[in-house]
Amino acid sequence: MAINLKALTDKEARFVGGHRLCAGCNEGTIVRQVLLAASDYEVAVLNATGCLEVTTSVYPYSSWKVPWLHEAFENAAAAASGAEAAYKALKRFGELPADKKIKFIAFGGDGGTYDIGLQALSGALERGHSFLYVLLDNEAYMNTGIQRSSSTPPYAWTTTSPVGAAIPGKVQPKKNIVEIVAAHGVPYVATASPSHYIDLMNKVQKALSYEGPTFLAVYSNCNRGHRNPTELSIAVSRMAVETNYWPLYEIEQGKYKITYKPRQPKPIEEWLKMQGRFAHLLKPESKPLVEQLQKWIDEKWELLQKKEEFSKTL
């Protein structure tokens, strides 16, 4: 079922250029990859309030060659629930042909997923609606001006976790959304990065092959908020994977599988130094903080490998 890039090049792009995403923004790249991988299906997109929504739908233009519904910030998953339930009912009552195959794909940012939309997401996952939720994780409220979210990593600068004498940026850990979603017992949960696009598209196809809720957490560099040059945005995403900050793995029917293992994981400094939001961590006196981050990443990676090992015994 692996992705055939050559075959996909003949498919029509259903997310097209001309949008107003910032230069270098990963979101456009990710959405193109997701919709391309979904080429075998008719798709309806649900889009929570956020950068993606704002920039792709400025009247009189649209980047979307699929039906597209914008909701409020907190309820893409709830709107997907209603749309999917109605679609199933239409099929059941013969209003739509029984062999009709529409896939519902919801896009939300980290604010709309980890924070304000978590309740709606949890409800939809628990009820078991058939849809793919794609999280575009740029680790802060970028659309409103870079405020911290519960996805912002420790020690990152944001406008509401300012770096100074009192705090070295955000002091709380990053919420583990993948485990939260997986704990609902849904059939397919995975992480991805636009830098590893074949992996990403394979995961989309796998997710869409399931009935029931599926979830894809995609790392999305925001050069405005992470403070890096626009041309490095994919490189930063790749480094997030190469340092094990953002490991690529999937949880398929409860079984963990790491889909990409860096041969020689790079130290976290390599990723930190690419981004201005961590500039204060490069000072010598911040060394303990960097060490702490490295420890946190190593422990998580260790645990993930153990989970993968354990999954093989299941």
Partner: peptide
């Protein structure tokens, strides 16, 4: 608070001032 345009600057300023 929670970030939302056009009020976010209030939160940003208070995140610095209140402490």
């Amino acid at each position: 608070g929670y970030p939302i345009t056009p009020s976010s600057e209030i939160a940003e300023a208070l995140s610095e001032l209140l402490p």
